[in-house]
Nucleic acid binder design. Structure first.
Lengths: 331, 331
DNA sequence: CTAGTCGACCAAAACGTTTTGGGGGAGATA
DNA sequence: TATCTCCCCCAAAACGTTTTGGTCGACTAG
């Protein structure tokens, strides 16, 4: 390239990057020759020099525990990943979806990313340890419940979801509201349960809480339905179920036992999915806005990467809406 | 690192990579020290030296023309991308989802990938030109109809899908079968139409073909329904519609006009999606097996990358199944 | 004792950039 | 003519590996 343009390597670099002092005519010529040759600086060499590759890593922790990256009917995460990839491109970065990079078999490229997004970190997440140790910036979606000092996370609105869902159910006439969470040690489960228990305490309600393994899917929901039916306590008249597949399973289980949704029991899912949209009746759900969240997370991470040391950006807020469907619409 | 272990940089490299001649004890010690320090070779520097980053690029051409990477109800591509990312990880690579890298605003990392997967290349696709010019290996899903010499592609089974769908419809009693394709210049549209016309010629049928822009989604399907109804020719008794959203729209349009599915008209979609699964009635669809295809594509690309010059692997075959649903189940 | 062989290790080059610290020539000033 | 100043431009270092082509002893064979 330098030879073709008849200048030094230095001048090529300066010309193409708009740095240094180069005569206008020279710069122009270098740019033309580069275009002609289809030349552009090698990203790897540039990365070695600058220690920035233009690559973001995305680790979706729930998929690590689910074991499968293609779980039936869990579209939240794929939509999240897709939107994150697109937003990254718009910011001039590539995005690589990774599994737990502490797991040994991680690809070499893992730690070469400029920054990471960790979706739903576990309590005391070792991935955060690893990245922190290697001084790689990261942004989390959901907080690490054992790491109160770590503040670069977004999605705190999940806490308020509990309140809005309960308000929604009250409005529709519910008196006894149960909560079903997953068992992953993330803030989505933990904070929702805490928030629910606070509400119960404040309102002199006996809390009704079930925790069910996310991996069991709809079948796990049916199990919860069975437990509810077998319980001595009277059936709740509304159930807030964090994962959509559990919700669909609970609905099917209760219907199989002769109960009507929503007339006998109302159901709300904490996460919209294909099942909640297409069950009979369709299930009212919180739209966790995977696209908007992914976009915000990437933008936040990029801002973090490109910010000066002194004026760090602060995490954006995400707005969640309730998709009001027939499972909470009585008579 | 070399200092900590008391050996030269060379010996560290040799020890960790199992190359060169190093005394067993020394190698062992180096490995221990590395583990202790959490050291592993910098992927960028290694990449510079070896010109291989351990990164694969994925370009999904239909999403470039759709303009949106989050199209409503098109889950094929996200599932494809997710599965590809996972398979890449299993092969020790990272995978980056990219937009058209010829579009100028491509991230610098674009051409640093070791190899590319191009899903549904357009006719004479400039992306293939770019990669070929830069000597970057690539694998396509679907062929470039203007590039018969390019053989590193898979998914040729889409051709046979036309035959199996027609056979399916015949078996269910269809006599006049229409075809609706998209308008993208890819082999999925082109080859399906050719194959359909061949069948029509061989069977003395007047071909009934509509081409509709993929971007119009369900609304585009309704338009086709209107055209069918406005046509002088009698309504076909079966419609093979390549994209799932068009199929759902056609079904809705015909139903709105008072026709019954499947009794008056049967409908088959060439691509399974949330709409085809959840329409009323559910629409019989070809399961394009995005996960299996993605997995095969990645494995093929990796084999290509890691093969010797002399024994290149050949593309795998994908099996497609028809999901038999109520839209083709009469009586 | 000398030459040859082999095992263990290492110095230095190379990969393609960016950045630093000049260098050289042309024009201006004395 | 000699010196000073700019303005352009460039050589060389550095980034952290891998790989090449050794060197240095110790041991063996003649």
């Amino acid at each position: 390239m330098a030879r073709h343009a008849g200048v030094s390597i230095t001048t090529v670099s300066h010309s193409l990057n708009g740095k240094g002092v180069v005569a206008k005519a020279t710069r122009q010529r270098v740019i033309e020759v580069a275009a002609e040759l289809g030349y552009s600086a090698d990203a790897i060499a540039r990365g070695l020099r600058s220690n920035r590759l233009g690559l973001l890593g995305l680790v979706i922790r729930p998929l690590d525990t689910l074991g499968s990256y293609q779980p039936e009917g869990v579209d939240y995460f794929l939509r999240f990943a897709g939107a994150a990839a697109v937003e990254a491109l718009d910011c001039g970065y590539g995005l690589v979806l990774m599994r737990d990079p502490t797991a040994g078999n991680a690809p070499g490229i893992a730690l070469a990313a400029d920054g990471f997004i960790i979706s739903d970190p576990l309590a005391g997440d070792p991935v955060i340890d690893l990245l922190t140790r290697n001084a790689i910036p990261l942004v989390a979606v959901g907080r690490d419940v054992e790491r109160p000092d770590f503040t670069a996370w977004l999605g705190g609105g999940t806490l308020r979801n509990v309140d809005s869902v309960i308000a929604h159910l009250h409005e529709r006439g519910a008196k006894r509201i149960a909560l079903v969470t997953g068992t992953d040690a993330n803030s989505w489960n933990a904070d929702s349960e805490n928030s629910y228990r606070e509400w119960a305490a404040e309102n002199n309600q006996t809390p009704i809480v079930y925790n069910q393994d996310e991996r069991l899917g709809e079948e796990g929901g049916r199990e919860i339905a069975d437990e509810l039916l077998a319980s001595d306590a009277p059936l709740p008249d509304a159930i807030y179920c964090l994962t959509g597949r559990h919700a669909a399973g609970i609905q099917a289980g209760l219907q199989a036992a002769g109960y009507r949704i929503p007339d006998d029991v109302m159901i709300v899912a904490g996460s919209d999915s294909e099942q909640t949209r297409n069950s009979t009746p369709p299930i009212t759900s919180v739209d966790l806005a995977p696209e908007a969240t992914a976009k915000a997370a990437v933008a936040y991470l990029v801002a973090l990467l490109e910010a000066d040391e002194d004026d760090q950006p602060s995490p954006p807020e995400i707005q969640y809406d309730i998709r009001d469907r027939a499972s909470t619409r009585r008579g």
